[in-house]
Every structure is written in structure tokens, then in C-alpha cells.
Amino acid sequence: MAQVEWRFSDEEVESILDIVSKQEHNPFVQKRREQNVAVADIDITQTEFWNAHLAALLTSQQRSGPDSHVSKFLKNDIDTLSLSQCRSVDDVSSFVADTLEEYGGIRYYNNIGDACEKNLTRLDSGGWNELWEELERLIDLRGQQPKDGIFETERNVATYLSNRFAGEGFHRIGSKQARNILQILGLTRYEIPLDSRITKWVNENFDLPYHISGAALSTPEYYHFTMDIVQDCCSTAGVLPCIFDAAVFSSYDTTWTESDADEIF
């Protein structure tokens, strides 16, 4: 397949540097730098993965700013749907859906419940071992300084989560959600969740020959193509994509606190 070579104007590169500079002291950006950029020995538990997976499901297609129902649930009540709690009930789908419906303000609770049941069954039926083998590839890289080429491993592991885990991928985990899981766990620096905030910012600040379609990002090939554009411009600007992502995300909310950043994502 032919490789598209993108060339970016000084204005486009400066737009990335500007948004990062403006948000540099935002607690959300500082947390991202600490959690995803600093060289670290990472040890991920089953509970941590489950919570990251739940956060990815909850933040899909609904508001997740610091004052949203989703963020408040993740900050204060995520233990009500902990791995141990879900393992203790006979009907995981109904348990999750009923818990979220009762909490209020969270959409798609039936879909989330269905996904939790299917994914827990796959994990506890031998899935954890194969999952750890994949995540170990990123854990090893997090013990090193960022360097070119790492994005390929990150992309492969994200694709594993969405397409190949247990033969078919995690249920209701697409390209965006897979990267959300890995980013929450502190495992990625280059592959980021391309949500509406990112696509809006790119459409407004990059002079592309087409308008990035949020709907089309559900197609892996289109997602990767768009991700290449973001990564290439970030590379030209000397900015890690995960920091660019945090800067854009936090720029739409002015109320992020250190507590929010620590406890939600």
C-alpha cells in the first residue's frame, strides 16, 4: 500500500505547539505527562484493566468532562461495578445496566451491561493470559524513553483489543475505545482516542483536502489513516500525541482539578 507523505504548514505546526503551551499547567495534561510519558515500571492488575475497560465503555458517545454524570460516576462510584462485584452476581448484564440506570444521567446502560457480561465471560474463560501477553509488549516499552516506531506496537495492541481478543475482540470496544483503555492504563504515547474534540480541533486547524468524519472513524482503515495525520504533525512539532490529546481534551473544559485527573483517568 502506498504511503501518503503529509507536509504541514508552519501555521499548522504552530497550532499544536500553541494548544499544548496554553494547557501545559492544566492538571489533566500534567497527569497525562506523569502517567503516560515518564519512564516507569508498570504493573497492571485485573481490577485496573476492568475499570479502564468500563471507563472506555462509559465515555463512548456521551459527555465525559469533569462535571458530567459519567466522570462523577467514575470518580465516586466505579466500585459499585468492580470486577469482584460483577463476578459475584449471576446476571452481569442486568446488574450493570440496573446500577447505571439507577445512578442516572448515563446513556446506553443496557449496551454497556451486555458488553460487560460478554467481556467478563471471555476474560475469565482463559482470556486474561492472552491479554497479559499483549499488554506486556507495551509495558516493556513504557520502561523506555519515547522513540519513533513505537506507534506500530501500540497500534497492533489496540487492534488486538478491538478485533482479535478471544478471536473476535472485546465486545463494543472499537478503535477509539481500545486506545482509551490503553491510554487510561498509561501504556500508550502515540496512539490516541480520536473523539469529537480531536476531530473538531483538527478540522478547524489543519488545511486538509477533506473534512474528517467522526462516523467514518468506526472503520479501522480510516481511523489509522487519520491517526497517521495527527501523528505526523505532532512529530513535526516535537509533541507526543498523548500530550496533544490531553491538551485538546482539557481545552474544552476549564474546571479540571488535580483530584479529577487523578481519580477519573
Rank of each mutant, 00 (worst) to 15 (best):
Q62A: 10
L182W: 01
G105Y: 01
W128E: 15
N163S: 15
L138Y: 01
S175V: 10
N119E: 05
I181S: 03
R179L: 11
R172T: 14
E130N: 02
C86I: 08
Q61L: 05
V96R: 01
S71A: 13
S162R: 06
Q145N: 14
D98H: 05
R164I: 11
R137S: 05
Q145F: 12
G105Q: 02
K176C: 12
T99C: 04
E133I: 04
I192C: 00
T121D: 15
N76T: 15
R197W: 04
E134C: 08
G143Y: 04
I106T: 01
L185E: 10
D79A: 13
E101N: 11
G167D: 07
C116P: 01
A97S: 11
V92S: 02
P146E: 15
L194G: 02
T159W: 13
S175D: 13
R107D: 11
L131I: 06
R172H: 14
E191K: 03
S84Q: 06
G167Q: 07
E191N: 08
R179T: 12
D114W: 11
A158N: 04
G186E: 05
E101K: 09
N111A: 07
S60L: 13
L138W: 03
K75C: 13
N156Y: 06
S68Y: 07
E152Q: 13
N180T: 09
P66G: 09
Q62L: 08
Q177T: 11
D114H: 15
S64C: 07
Y109C: 04
E134S: 13
N76C: 14
L185S: 01
D67H: 09
T188C: 02
L74F: 06
Q61Y: 08
G126H: 03
D98T: 12
D124F: 01
T121Y: 06
T188P: 02
R189P: 02
L141Y: 04
R63E: 08
L100A: 02
E117V: 04
G186P: 02
E191H: 08
G105M: 07
E154Y: 06
L141N: 01
F165V: 10
S162C: 09
E154I: 15
N129E: 08
H171F: 07
L161I: 10
A178H: 05
S88D: 14
A178R: 02
E130V: 00
R155P: 00
F165L: 05
T188L: 00
V92H: 06
K72R: 12
L141S: 00
N119H: 08
R142S: 11
I184Q: 07
Q144A: 14
G174A: 10
R179K: 09
E152S: 04
L161R: 02
L161Q: 01
G186Y: 15
T121F: 04
L141K: 00
A158H: 03
S82Q: 11
L187A: 00
W128R: 13
F73N: 04
N110F: 08
I139M: 05
G113N: 03
S60P: 02
R189E: 13
Q144V: 11
